[in-house]
Write a protein that binds this DNA or RNA. Structure first.
Length: 678
DNA sequence: GTAGGGTTAG
């Protein structure tokens, strides 16, 4: 697009003069009285949209368009004539806003640019402000044309060459368009080109918005930093708040991750200007922070809000309480509860749910029950009716500590009070509780009761019952029940199969277990637990070749065996005197970055001791740094020569296997008999 | 599209 010397061909000028009539002036007045926008918004449109037809043209505009459109390289004489006409029309006395309005009505950017050229190449030339306004309309028109990005860039350079300062609207439009067109490196360029006094809040907001959308976090933060200073000339406003807090949560892909600390810092700076994230945004942040283990930042965030008296609702506190509970920060939970109270924020049913759940999971069921009664009686600052979740939490808590009858009674109370009926989960808690206690009949009874109540069982109901039967030696009944449910349309899942497979292994029906394992593989993608169940079942049955096959398959399926799995294999190979294979496993697990633990060493120590290879056994003992109860028992049993047996026994009495060790090898730990090692 | 407890199974 050239701006040089395109003087109009004036073949039609005479016609223009001829058709000119006094109404033209009136049209001008009409134009000029169009509502002058105190705050004009650029009307950038996607370049794909067709140029809108010019608004109902006044005769003057129609004529102007005609002249400008029909031009090509004409003589300067013709040009002068046009200028003469423009002058006679009073165009040089128009305000910049009026010029803008006129230019907007031209059909395209190129025509408008020619208009601009005419205006500036003749005297008297409108002042820079007026020309800038005309250029603003040129930008607007270009933004609606195809390939607007490149065109705008070209026009931007042109305006620089002409030394025409950008208007705020031009800059805003350019920033928007370059942002949409992903011309990231142009955003700051435009902003910096704008005179400092014109870099107002609105243009900054658009800039920040586009920078964030385009991932330029650091540039955005730098612009924001200026707006958030206490003496900022153009301080952040409500729009800035919305753009930034929405933008940051949408998770545009930034050039780098914004740390939680930075977010807290930003919220704090906004807060100093009385601008805060809304309660929902805040709560989402707190939840997110807690989920990624950034509880401390979540805490800081909420406290920044509290310190600056930002708007706060109970949900944000609930989110943080949940995070603290999951991270075991119970003291902070209490502190936060107290702060809530001081701030006058009342707990709701969710807050109570968190507290009751916490107490139940800590097995402090009596305190949970006490709180339950308190909330109903309005002794927590407000009366709160417990909902089904709170009931379920309590019932589960009671069942988990073996207070099955009390759990059952609470369920009966729900039914009789009739305002909060038992759900599937309610029955599931009870059924699982009775199953684990071996009261299978009671569980089945409850299962029928839920049917009568019209409460639908789900896969968890089925799995609790199947698992209960399997764990109590009734794998056959479990399978029957499982099939029956399937016929009724309640399909099991991999968990059901895991229970059944384990159940059949436990009653030594190895083939049936493996048959189910194969059946399961056809329907579901096996997970690590079901592989582990099959591996340990086959190992206990002494079928190490099969166990190794499943072990290999598990690895092929992409599961990295954990140390427990390796230990089972090593143990199985030792038991079947395949020490080479055991060594192979040991090497492999070390290669995979796992250190042999007590269980591994105990297995090996036991093997070598039993086989009279005391030298290797010694080596193992030295390598194992933390002898535990089991190590000492093995030593006592097999190596009386290592130390004095009595001394050892005394030492042993002070030992307990840690919970974590126990949970790693449920089928081997928690018992002190050595049979498993032999 | 409106957060926050959450319940239960290997």
């Amino acid at each position: 697009m050239s701006i040089t010397s395109t003087a109009p061909k004036c073949s039609r000028l005479l016609r223009l003069l001829r058709i000119q009539n006094p109404n033209c002036r009136a049209s001008f007045i009409h134009l000029a009285t169009e509502k002058p926008s105190a705050h004009r918004l650029p009307k950038a449109l996607p370049s794909s949209s067709p140029a809108p037809p010019p608004p109902s043209c006044s005769p003057f505009i129609a004529q102007l368009i005609e002249v400008l459109k029909s031009e090509d390289n004409g003589s300067s004489e013709e040009n002068e004539k046009l200028v003469e006409i423009l002058t006679s029309l009073g165009i040089h006395s128009l305000s910049s806003d009026q010029l803008l309005q006129i230019t907007r009505r031209l059909p395209d950017a190129s025509t408008a640019l020619n208009f601009l050229q005419h205006l500036r190449s003749n005297s008297p030339c409108p002042d820079d402000d007026s020309l800038s306004s005309v250029f603003e309309a040129v930008f607007e028109l270009a933004s609606r044309e195809p390939n607007s990005g490149d065109k705008l860039m070209e026009l931007f350079n042109t305006s620089k060459q002409l030394n025409l300062p950008l208007t705020v609207c031009s800059a805003t439009l350019l920033i928007r368009c370059f942002g949409k067109g992903k011309m990231v490196d142009k955003l700051m360029l435009v902003f910096n080109e704008l005179e400092p006094r014109k870099r107002d809040c609105d243009v900054r907001n658009v800039l920040v918005d586009e920078l964030l959308r385009n991932g330029c976090l650091d540039d955005a933060l730098q612009v924001l930093d200026e707006m958030l200073q206490s003496n900022a000339q153009f301080p952040a406003n409500e729009n800035t708040r919305r753009i930034v807090f929405d933008g940051l949560f949408k998770g545009h892909k930034y050039e780098r991750r914004m740390s939680e600390k930075e977010i807290v810092e930003l919220v704090s700076k906004f807060g100093a200007h009385g601008l805060f994230p809304d309660s929902i945004r805040l709560t989402k942040w707190i939840t997110k922070f807690c989920r990624i283990g950034e509880c401390d930042s979540a805490w800081d965030l909420l406290h920044v809000m509290m310190d600056l008296d930002g708007p706060l609702e109970v949900a944000s506190f609930n989110a943080l309480l949940t995070g603290l509970e999951k991270n075991g920060q119970f003291k902070k939970m209490n502190l936060l509860m107290k702060e809530m109270k001081d701030k006058g924020i009342l707990p709701n049913v969710v807050t109570m749910g968190i507290s009751i759940n916490h107490l139940c999971k800590s097995r402090r069921v009596d305190e949970a029950l006490e709180l339950f009664e308190k909330m109903r009686a309005g002794e927590v600052g407000v009366t709160i009716e417990p909902d089904v979740i709170i009931h379920n939490t309590l019932i589960d808590g009671l069942c988990k500590v073996g207070r099955l009858e009390e759990g059952l009674a609470l369920m009966r109370r729900m039914k009789s009070e009739n305002n909060c009926l038992p759900s599937t989960a309610t029955y599931n808690c009870l059924i699982d509780g009775f199953c684990k206690a071996g009261e299978l009949e009671k569980s089945v009874e409850l299962f029928h009761e839920m049917g009568k109540d019209g409460v639908q069982p789900n896969v968890i109901t089925v799995n609790s019952l199947v698992d209960g039967m399997c764990k109590h030696g009734r794998a056959g009944s479990a399978l029957e029940f499982f099939k029956e449910m399937k016929e009724k349309g309640l399909e099991g899942n991999a968990v059901s199969y895991t229970a059944l497979i384990g159940g059949f292994f436990a009653v030594n029906k190895i083939n049936k277990a493996m048959e189910l394992f194969d059946e399961m593989r056809e329907k579901f993608t096996p997970d690590a637990v079901v592989y582990y169940t099959a591996i340990s079942g086959l190992t206990l049955a002494g079928r190490m070749d099969d166990a190794y096959l499943v072990f290999s398959e598990m690895r092929k399926a992409g599961f990295q065996p954990d140390i427990g799995c390796y230990n089972v294999m090593i143990n199985g190979f030792c038991k079947t005197n395949k020490i080479d294979k055991a060594h192979e496993m040991l090497k492999e697990m070390t290669r995979a970055g796992m250190k042999p633990d007590n269980f591994t060493y105990n297995t090996l120590i036991s093997y070598f001791s039993k086989n009279g290879d005391l030298k290797t056994a010694h080596k193992m003992i030295e390598e194992a740094c933390n002898p535990d109860y089991m190590t000492l028992e093995i030593l006592t049993e097999w190596l009386p020569g290592v130390g004095e047996a009595d001394k050892l026994r005394k030492f042993v009495q002070g030992y307990k296997i840690s919970d974590s060790t126990r949970s790693c090898y449920p089928q081997f730990c928690g018992q002190s008999d050595l049979s498993k090692y032999r």
